[in-house]
Design a protein around this nucleic acid. Structure first.
Length: 466
RNA sequence: GGCUCGGUGGCAGAGUGGUUAUGCAGCGGAUUGCAAAUCCGUCUACGGCGGUUCGAUUCCGUUCCGAGCCUCCA
């Protein structure tokens, strides 16, 4: 029996995680709309849920992770008109980019990565059922979910309909009976993509796709549903409403998902990164300069539910910390580890199992890498490496060899690498001949190339300067 | 207006009713041909005001400040 505790957004409390089927944990997280390069916020969501899944895989024999791709949406249509390309071309392009960027962040491809367009038929069936049961109505070709048919509406975000100012920041569409009603199906214009349906040529509303795909692939109820905090309302409340009504379990909101997890925002200058503020930063700009693992670690440096302030200094700090651990791994390079060796000491499990308290895990890790005893015998070294490699599997870090890590050419050419090697060689000769002024001069040249030299008892090592 | 969530040392970030994590950066020392790396040591903190308590950063109240949601958004 495990002691995994996760924070459930539905109760606003940490709860012991009790799986529905301990032989197969089922988790769904809302993925991106692919109409542009991924921003840091998209990356945080992907990294956070990838880490949660990795932790679940450490605890349970099987985990099924679904994260969708929204590939039909007004934003994609807009983009396709701007770029004079089809929606499919747009979404395919940015999906490919997204997945290759996620790979650099050591984010595994989910077990299922369904696209909305592949599930339109299922969505139509589900909408039809909702309409037949009286949970949805047709107004001017729009099929709307009738919020008043689901008394528990808003129970996830805990907002009562009466006290909300409906449309406080946006005008309410005239075709809505109740301002909170949301679109399940909307008509498409001639030049817009669409599908034939009982209500004419049109396309699904966004809130239906996740409900349909999660239900079809994972079956309800499933264990965990996640996404960014901004999806809590209305997106996730809308999913719950659809699923509960669809299953005719209006009183049992856990008939859809048992645990809800939400990651916090990335903030820039104390403000949420958002399109309207124009303070979006794109992941690709950082991947050009930093190893993806540095970005991943920076994204994990705050607890997943807290806001994360995105700054250069956070990234540099992350790099320094990873450097330190790679120095340790360099000392353990000769130690071989088997898959079955991968297990954590209790003290570390407690940290990870406490709603992913990575900070506390690092208290322990820092302690054991400082303890000289752990480097004295091969047995101790093996034990240490075992722990680090298990952490590697859970957090998706320490995935490189130390040599790759320190000497990887991110922004340099092969010729440059040859020049560096040659200069180091020349300096070694100079040092052997006690020609220290020449050696120092050569080191200065290397410094100018961004290379830091480390003379050790076993020869010279080098790494890139920050 | 309603509903959430926060305010911890230069920075990041846990946690706890009393021995004030941890890391990064800084500083001092050891070491080194000189360095770097490493090792050892080290300074700053819990928004304000009340209350409960022998004792509160931790509990309660209040206040100020900040962020988010109530619109598409990870």
């Amino acid at each position: 029996m495990n002691n995994l505790k996760i924070y459930n957004s539905i109760s606003n409390k940490k709860e012991t995680f009790i799986p529905i089927d301990k032989n197969n944990i089922r988790i769904y997280a809302c993925g991106p709309t692919v109409y542009n390069y991924a921003h840091i916020g998209n990356a945080r969501m992907a990294v956070v849920f990838d880490t949660i899944v990795k932790l679940l895989r450490y605890v349970f024999p099987k985990v099924t992770y679904v994260s969708n791709i929204t590939d039909i949406d007004d934003k994609i249509i807009k983009r396709s008109l701007e770029e004079k390309k089809t929606c499919e071309e747009i979404s395919e392009t940015y999906l490919r980019i997204y997945n290759s960027e996620m790979k650099k962040l050591n984010v595994d491809v989910p077990d299922f990565q369904p696209k909305a367009t592949e599930y339109v038929h299922s969505m139509i069936e589900k909408i039809k059922h909702l309409e037949n049961q009286g949970f949805a109505y047709n107004k001017d070709g729009h099929i709307l979910f009738s919020v008043s048919s689901f008394p528990k509406y808003g129970m996830l975000s805990k907002r009562s309909k009466e006290k909300q100012i409906a449309g406080s920041r946006v005008s309410v569409e005239s075709y809505k009976i109740n301002p909170e009603d949301f679109v399940l199906w909307k008509p498409s214009k001639k030049n817009e993509p669409g599908w034939n349906s009982p209500w004419g040529f049109g396309r699904p509303g966004w809130h239906t796709e996740c409900f349909a795909m999660a239900s079809d692939i994972l079956k309800t109820p499933f264990d965990i549903h996640g996404g960014g905090l901004d999806l809590k309302f209305p997106h996730h409340d809308n999913e719950i409403a659809q699923s509960c009504c669809f299953q005719n379990k209006k009183d049992d909101f856990s008939s859809y998902a048992r645990y809800w997890m939400h990651n916090g925002f990335v903030t820039i200058d104390e403000k949420k990164m958002s399109k309207s503020l124009g303070n979006i930063v794109l992941l690709k700009d950082y991947l050009e300069v930093y190893n993806g693992e540095v970005i991943r670690f920076a994204l994990l440096s705050a607890h997943y539910r807290s806001p994360l302030v995105w700054t250069e200094s956070l990234i540099n700090q992350s790099k320094n910390i990873l450097d330190k651990f790679y120095e340790v791994l360099r000392k353990l390079e000769d130690i071989k580890i088997q898959r079955y060796d991968l297990i954590l000491p209790k003290e570390l499990e407690v940290c990870f199992f406490d709603d992913l308290n990575i900070s506390n895990a690092f208290v322990y890790l820092n302690k054991i890498i400082r303890n000289k005893e752990n480097f004295k015998t091969d047995k101790n070294k093996k034990n240490l490496k075992k722990i680090l490699m298990t952490v590697s599997n859970i957090l998706g870090i320490f995935k490189h060899s130390p040599k790759e890590w320190f000497n990887e050419k991110i922004n340099t050419s092969d010729e440059n690498m040859k020049i560096i090697e040659a200069l180091i060689q020349k300096r070694n000769v100079a040092r052997e001949n006690k020609n220290f002024s020449l050696a120092d001069d050569l080191r200065k040249q290397l410094t100018n190339l961004g290379v830091e030299i480390q003379d050790g008892p076993k020869g010279v090592k080098w790494k890139w300067l920050n």
